[in-house]
């Protein structure tokens, strides 16, 4: 009986909202962060693998920067109407310091001209893998008295952290025209989780943000319009 009256109340409340209104589907436009027409010629890369301080980069079974370049190239080709130029082999960087490199307008202008690009999308990437074992609070129901207790258990985890700095350079002048940092952390409840799978789990999480830099999108939602 009570549930019936509750359902009736919910129905009445919904009817009150809907009275004299009409719910419509709406596609909200989202502009791309970097304002371009969407038909430009883009040169993707090079990306530098960054390390913290003087630490040597962790030994991985794959080239993080190269994999990221490949991923970004595929993503922009799929989501946009850009002309993605083929990768240039044997690019010699003027410096390995990402900050210095971003200021080297001559290098970017030369690379852009060589590729025949309108913009060069490059930057730096830091990818760290951390294996940890840490205590975690867990609840359990005692089979003896049926009560809920809390206990500490050791959990083995692998954490993958991304720190990407995406730079866009004007290929005609070599000037830095757009910069956006991306950060993401993913954790897997398993020790020594496969690095390659972990890296792509992070990248898929960042996919939408990366696309949003270059491609305008829409978000579907609903709104009420009042009827006269």
């Amino acid at each position: 009986m009570r549930s019936l009256s509750l359902a009736l109340c919910v129905l009445l409340a919904a009817a009150a909202v809907q009275a004299g209104t009409r719910e419509i589907e709406l596609s909200l436009p989202l502009r791309s962060k970097f304002q371009i027409s969407g038909h430009e010629r883009l040169q993707i890369g090079p990306f530098l693998r960054e390390t913290r301080g003087d630490e040597a980069p962790a030994a991985l079974k794959f080239d993080v920067a190269q994999e990221f370049e490949r991923f970004l190239r595929k993503l922009l080709r799929k989501e946009g109407k850009f002309v993605i130029l083929p990768a240039i082999e044997g690019v010699r960087l003027s410096t390995t310091d990402p900050l210095q490199l971003s200021k080297d307008t001559e290098f970017w202008r030369e690379l852009g001209t060589r590729a025949g690009a309108d913009y060069v999308v490059a930057g730096s990437i830091e990818f760290t893998v951390q294996d940890t074992t840490q205590p975690k609070m867990e609840s359990y129901e005692s089979p003896i008295d049926g009560r809920t207790y809390y206990r500490q258990v050791m959990v083995e985890q692998t954490g993958f952290t991304y720190d990407i700095l995406l730079n866009v350079y004007d290929a005609r002048t070599g000037a830095l025209v757009f910069q956006e940092p991306f950060k993401d952390t993913q954790e897997r409840e398993e020790r020594s989780f496969d690095e390659f799978t972990g890296m792509f789990a992070n990248l898929y999480a960042l996919e939408n943000k990366l696309v949003g830099v270059f491609v305008p999108r829409t978000v579907k939602t609903k709104r009420f319009l009042f009827l006269p």
Partner: peptide, 28 residues
């Protein structure tokens, strides 16, 4: 007005997530 408040809340949520740079929730 409930319909008006709902519309405003949905836009406010969308706009906040947009400003924070996260993906706005679909089907608000």
């Amino acid at each position: 007005n409930t319909a008006l408040k709902r519309n405003y809340a949905r836009l406010a949520e969308f706009y906040t997530s947009l400003a924070r740079g996260v993906k706005p929730k679909e089907k608000g």
